[in-house]
Simulated scan of single mutants.
Amino acid sequence: MMKQTIMTAFPHSKIKADESLSHYTYTKTGGPADWLIFPESITEVAAIIKWLKEAGVPVTFLGNASNVIIKDGGIRGAVIMLTSLKNVEVIGNYIIVDAGAKLIDVSRIAYEQQLSGLEFACGIPGSVGGAVYMNAGAYGGEISVVIDEVTLVTASGDIQKVTPDDLDFSYRHSAIQESDSLVVQATFKLQKGDPSVIQKRMAELTHLRESKQPLEYPSCGSVFKRPKGHFTGQLIQEAGLQGYQIGGVQVSQKHAGFMVNIANGTATDYMNLIHYVQKVIKEKFDVDLEPEVRIIGQEVTEKQQKN
């Protein structure tokens, strides 16, 4: 009934019912969404969120599902995925980007425009929206350093612009994580740079990423935040957990900070392996590993198991 109503309200929107999210996540795991919606403009996002709020339907937001584990029971209500929002505009030293654009692509556009500041992002597979949400970073760079302005859609469907000061950025954190707002656009402030220097740095970081990260298997990227005074991968190696496997998911043999889906693993396999690694690291080193990956959704119900 709801699908028919929402499709009547938004006849030009792309909406799928009871859609398996494993088709979209980088881990290739995750249960179904009751409704999966792909808006194509910021105003469409705002209108859909407003409609869903008035209809009392819970809403979950996904970027391009690269740094997320969705449990095998899936997500009730509506899931809004922003992969169709990917416009990019360059004005002087500023790049204005829709949230669904891939950060890697934006870093390449910056290079083409001889703009420096996003070199660190040339190997981050996530979307711009997800990167702002979690203050993504790599190789000494962070999103918060280059953000000038962010456009949000609030839980009520209002569009608002905020500055970095409003977002309380810290390591892998932004104030958006404690709100019900959705990042729909970001403006990066960069500096003019020497294209040969920018290209050399991006080539170095790309080589580092390809040589160290297990890109040949599905994964959610770096699983844990870096604990103060330690390196996560080193702790896991020293605990003898590299290569440890539960179900189809393994602590990567190439980089111990990653968990890879090598044999049709499930989100439950991921969850069990995460908990096991946390338990062992706590016992051996008295260090608490906090997930960097976003974990959402519900466990499998008895009804789903029977089906």
Score class of each variant (00 low, 15 high):
E302N: 13
K284T: 12
I295W: 03
G297I: 09
K284Y: 09
E299T: 08
T301H: 08
I274M: 09
E290I: 14
K282E: 15
E283T: 13
Q298L: 11
Q298N: 12
K284Q: 15
I281R: 04
E292L: 11
E302T: 01
Q298V: 05
D288H: 12
I296C: 04
Q278V: 07
I274R: 02
D288M: 07
G297L: 05
Y276E: 11
V277K: 02
R294G: 00
I296N: 02
M271S: 11
L273W: 04
K282S: 13
Q278A: 10
K279Q: 15
E290S: 08
E299C: 00
E290Y: 04
K284C: 05
P291M: 10
F285C: 00
D288P: 00
V280I: 15
I296T: 02
Q298E: 15
K284E: 15
Y276S: 06
D288K: 12
V277H: 02
I296P: 03
K282Q: 15
N272W: 05
E302A: 01
V277I: 06
I274V: 10
T301E: 01
R294S: 09
Q298W: 00
Q278S: 08
P291D: 10
F285G: 03
I274K: 02
R294F: 07
D288T: 14
R294A: 11
K279L: 05
M271E: 15
L289R: 02
V287P: 04
Y276L: 10
D286C: 07
V280C: 06
Q298F: 07
G297H: 08
Y276A: 02
V287H: 08
L289H: 00
E299K: 13
V277W: 01
M271Y: 13
Y276F: 14
E302C: 11
L273C: 07
D288W: 06
G297R: 06
M271G: 05
Q298A: 09
Y270I: 00
E290L: 04
I274T: 04
D288A: 10
V280T: 12
I295A: 00
I295F: 02
L273H: 03
I296D: 03
I281N: 08
V287C: 01
G297T: 09
K282M: 15
V280Y: 00
E283P: 01
V287D: 10
I281L: 10
D288Q: 14
P291Q: 10
P291A: 06
E290M: 03
I274D: 02
N272F: 02
Y270P: 03
V287N: 08
T301N: 03
E302Y: 11
N272D: 12
M271V: 15
V300R: 11
E299R: 07
L289V: 02
N272M: 10
K279S: 13
D286G: 08
I296E: 01
E302M: 00
Q278M: 10
T301Y: 01
K279A: 09
E292S: 05
D288R: 06
G297P: 06
V280D: 04
I274A: 02
Q278C: 05
V293W: 01
K282Y: 12
H275L: 13
Q278G: 03
Q298K: 11
G297N: 08
I296R: 02
I296Q: 00
V293F: 06
E283Y: 07
Q278L: 12
E299M: 10
